[in-house]
């Protein structure tokens, strides 16, 4: 699944899934999910070597992905379903009783594709480092990817992890920051200013790449591929990826207000009308 027009079509289908999932259960986090759609489609549809079935927790010989900002579960679940980890119809169970698609990702119900719970923020980079260290010990040449939010970088554990990855020369690790400049209570510049983010990562010993448009699918793929080429040189690699929260649905775009809010019927119809695919494959 590497043809770019197919992947773009997939991205729109994923956005439709996201809107339907949060509308269905009237809860969940559409904003960050829509903003990171290109990233997930690029990763699972093009960049990573991964085997959906049978899903193997240990991921030996495969690329592994860790989501630290677990609240954007809708986009992850949709992409996992659309790339063969489970049936897309299961997306209809999101956040409902007895579901494997918990509000925040979990291994507890055995959903294929999820390797660790996340949601309580700040823990994912550490876990990704652990998996990358294990690959190094095993002589496994594949990569470990992780995604973290930018607001999430308020958490001290992130910086413990960032410091340690450089110290331990974890150079099979590619962390991406969803640099959308928004968090629940408002713009990151107002809630807790991240300052000069590239300089901070650089000062902590990482190879820093900046992606100006994280909602341009081809640019995301190119950047992830570039990041892979930058690994193996003694430094962990970070992509600071600028995205627009809510991208793809005009009234959700560029604001923190749709961080954790579901659309009503009218908004749902409005959003779905904007997300046109050649052939719908809605769950």
């Amino acid at each position: 699944m590497s043809d770019i027009s197919q992947l773009k079509e997939l991205a729109t289908q994923v956005r439709r899934d996201i809107i339907r999932m949060v509308f269905n259960c009237q809860s969940g986090h559409p904003g960050g999910s829509l903003g990171c759609t290109e990233f997930f489609v690029a990763l699972y549809g093009n960049v990573m070597k991964h085997k959906p079935k049978p899903f193997k927790m240990e991921g030996k010989g495969q690329d592994m992905f860790f989501l630290s900002n677990g609240h954007i579960s809708p986009v992850w679940y949709s992409v996992l379903a659309r790339t063969g980890y489970f049936e897309p119809k299961e997306l209809a169970t999101f956040r409902k009783i007895n579901t494997r698609l918990q509000g925040h990702p979990a291994t507890h119900e055995g959903l294929p594709g999820i390797r660790i719970a996340s949601g309580s923020l700040g823990q994912g980079i550490s876990a990704a480092i652990g998996a990358a260290l294990a690959k190094r010990l095993d002589g496994d040449k594949r990569w470990v990817f992780a995604l973290t939010g930018d607001g999430e970088l308020d958490e001290g554990q992130c910086w413990e992890a960032i410091m340690s990855a450089a110290h331990m020369k974890v150079d099979n690790l590619i962390v991406t920051v969803d640099w959308n400049g928004q968090q629940i209570d408002g713009p990151t510049s107002q809630v807790m200013d991240l300052g000069n983010l590239p300089a901070k990562w650089k000062a902590f010993g990482w190879d820093v790449l900046i992606l100006e448009n994280g909602n341009d699918l081809e640019a995301v793929i190119a950047m992830l591929r570039k990041a892979k080429r930058r690994t193996g040189k003694g430094k962990p690699v970070v992509i600071l990826m600028k995205t627009q929260m809510g991208y793809g649905v005009d009234f959700m775009q560029g604001t923190h207000k749709w961080h954790g809010k579901a659309p009503n019927q009218e908004q749902y119809e409005q959003a779905m009308a904007q997300l046109k695919v050649a052939q719908t494959a809605d769950f």
Partner: peptide, 8 residues
């Protein structure tokens, strides 16, 4: 966290 990743 690193331990959890190693175990994974």
């Amino acid at each position: 966290g690193i331990a959890a990743g190693l175990a994974t």
